[in-house]
Every structure is written in C-alpha cells, then in structure tokens.
Amino acid sequence: MESRQLYQEVILDHNRKPRNYGRLESPTHHSEGVNPLCGDHIFLDLALEAQTIARISFEGQSCAICKASASMMSSVVKGRSVLEADRMVEGFRALATGQASAEQMTDLGRLRVFEGIKDLPSRVKCAVLPWHTLHAALHAESATTTEGDADPVPGSA
C-alpha cells in the first residue's frame, strides 16, 4: 500500500491544527510516551471527574501520524468514562494491527481513517503511541513505550 493514502485531509488537518494541544494546569493523571525508533515523544495530561475524562491535553514532538492520532483520540475520549476509554484503546490497537471486530470498527467511528496503517508495519507504533500513553495515564503508569511487552508489532523496530 502507498502511505500517501493514509495522509488524507483529516490526518493532515489534525497534524496542522492539533486539538487539545498543550498541558493541563492541574491534571489528575499524567503519562509520557516514547517511541525510541523514531523519537516520537508525547506528554498526556488528564483531569478525571467521577471516573470520566473531563479534560485531556497532549503535547510533544512527533510525526504527523502520531500527532493526528493523539489529536483525534483526545477529541473522541473527552467526556467518556474510564471504562469506555479502555475499550477504545483496545479497539484502536486492534484496528492498527488489522484485527478489529465488526463491533470494534463501529465503535471507532472516524478513527477508522487509520485503518490503512496496518499495511505499513513500520508506522503502526506511531499511531498507537498516544493510545498506549492514554492507557498508562489512566492506570497510573508514569511512562510508557511502544517497545517490549507493549509492542504492537513485535520485532518491527
């Protein structure tokens, strides 16, 4: 597959104007995600109220795929419960590795724009990093990476 197909207007737009970009003043949860292969590095802040993501913000240095993924993720999970967010993390991971069920595909809605990433193994981690970071923040892990046990595509680095 040509990667050009992935760089659709919606992804380019989120890269140019990322939503929820910056840091929160008083986050209740925080995590930092690193992809050592390409140097993608993002900081994610969350403010949870009654087990719901009331506010979310990210910032960092990353490629367009990672930044657009983080931006779209932040829009989509805002207002969702921790449980729902966890389910979306699972769903996105499945999407990026070409294993999403029909139900997951429906749940993911406009995030399906990332479906083509499954055919670009070297870029899967770029798209997944924000979601790993979200999972880590929700479950009080202060740092995460796309390597080791959490590697969505073992051996691809």
């Binding site: 040509e2 990667s3 050009r4 760089y7 390409c38 367009a64 070297s122």
Partner: peptide
C-alpha cells in the same frame, strides 16, 4: 516542520529508500 518519518514513508511511495531518524 514535516517529521522525517512522514517524509520517509512518502518517499517510499515513489520507490525512494532513505534513512530517517537520529
């Protein structure tokens, strides 16, 4: 401001192999 990894993937579309990274 285009990240080198995006450049690398898009160059590959044209058959061009380069290294991207640190």
């Amino acid at each position: 401001d285009v990240h080198p990894h995006d450049v690398g993937s898009l160059l590959n579309d044209e058959g061009i192999a380069v290294r991207t990274g640190h």
